[in-house]
């Protein structure tokens, strides 16, 4: 095993080009587990810890360019306003120690369906900035997950950052685990209201071979909200609409039975989380509307 320690992003890209099977390591919270337990013996470990810009973020007009290695604890602390869904998701990641090390780049690189960040990224809308010596491309998050623990990265590419749309409305994130802290998701759900486009986006984790969106549920809710004039009248979403949305989210799942939970439970729980997060975000939206109106 070789340990490559590039001092800059350019060196990192060159190293990855020279050694396409090199395994990038940043927070180490996935890679080191595999090494410690002899599940993986890569020829090269590519340490990204010296590439300072990976740990930085820039808040732009439309989106946040979030460095791949920005630790979850910093997202929780500093990006709660811009990326509320991702900040909530970050808070559910493992333990404080892990949140101090792990970042979104690791979740994306590993592409486990149980990665906590995925549903929040799917719901917010995001693009993955994949870079190689050949150049840079932005991969829409919807196209990023290609299979169980597989993603759209080419062998010579590294994740530089993820561009996440800044929240234009309330976002929520829920995760079911069988413990009250430090737990891998049995299933997880992210929801983002986008009042500017009058759309709703979802993200579901651990309930299908890849993280997914519940597109039919989104479409249903988008039209139900539109038809009912809800975005304008700020009324409570009718229980039947919420239920139908929840059922469609559950139906979007394609889960398995495993040691963490049954497929049937995962479907059920996604439905419950969908209904609850819709209620929470919508209440928040209505509250914000009233405040705005009151101010105006």
């Amino acid at each position: 095993m070789d340990f490559l320690r590039p001092a800059s992003w350019e060196e990192a890209l060159a190293a990855k080009a020279a050694h396409p099977t090199a395994v990038p390591i940043a927070g180490g919270t996935d890679v080191m587990v595999e090494i410690n337990f002899d599940h993986r013996r890569p020829d090269h470990l590519l340490d990204l810890g010296r590439v300072a810009e990976l740990g930085e973020w820039e808040v732009g007009e439309e989106s946040v360019r979030l460095g791949a290695s920005v630790p979850y604890s910093r997202i929780m602390e500093h990006l709660r306003a811009e990326l509320p869904g991702l900040a909530l998701a970050s808070h559910t990641v493992a333990s404080p120690q892990i949140r101090n090390r792990g970042g979104v780049g690791g979740n994306l690189g590993t592409a486990s369906p149980a990665g906590d960040a995925h549903p929040a990224l799917l719901a917010a809308g995001a693009e993955v900035e994949a870079v190689s010596v050949r150049g840079t491309r932005l991969i829409p998050i919807d196209d990023f997950y290609t299979g169980v623990k597989r993603n759209a990265l080419a062998p010579d590419e590294l994740i530089r950052a993820v561009h996440v749309q800044k929240a234009d409305g309330p976002q929520q994130y829920s995760k079911v685990g069988t413990r009250n802290a430090m737990v891998i998701a049995v299933c997880a759900f992210g929801l983002a209201l986008h009042p500017e486009t009058r759309t709703v986006r979802t993200g579901i984790g651990s309930a299908a071979p890849t993280p997914i969106r519940a597109r039919i549920a989104e479409e249903f809710l988008n039209s139900a909200l539109e038809e009912g004039g809800f975005w304008d009248n700020g009324k409570i979403v009718t229980p039947s609409v919420a239920k139908q949305f929840a059922d469609l989210c559950a139906a979007a799942c394609n889960p398995i039975d495993d040691v963490r939970g049954t497929a049937s439970y995962r479907r059920h729980a996604v439905g419950v989380m969908a209904r609850r997060t819709l209620t929470w975000t919508w209440e928040s939206y209505r509250g914000a509307r009233h405040t705005t109106e009151g101010a105006a």
Binding site: I25, T29, V31, M32, V33, P96, Q97, R101
Partner: peptide
């Protein structure tokens, strides 16, 4: 595997699981 915290140290001031730091 970062699930118990027994190996917690401060790395540049920040608590981390030293078992997961190469």
């Amino acid at each position: 595997q970062g699930e118990c915290g027994s190996c917690t140290v401060r790395l540049d001031g920040v608590p981390v699981c030293s078992c997961l730091v190469a």
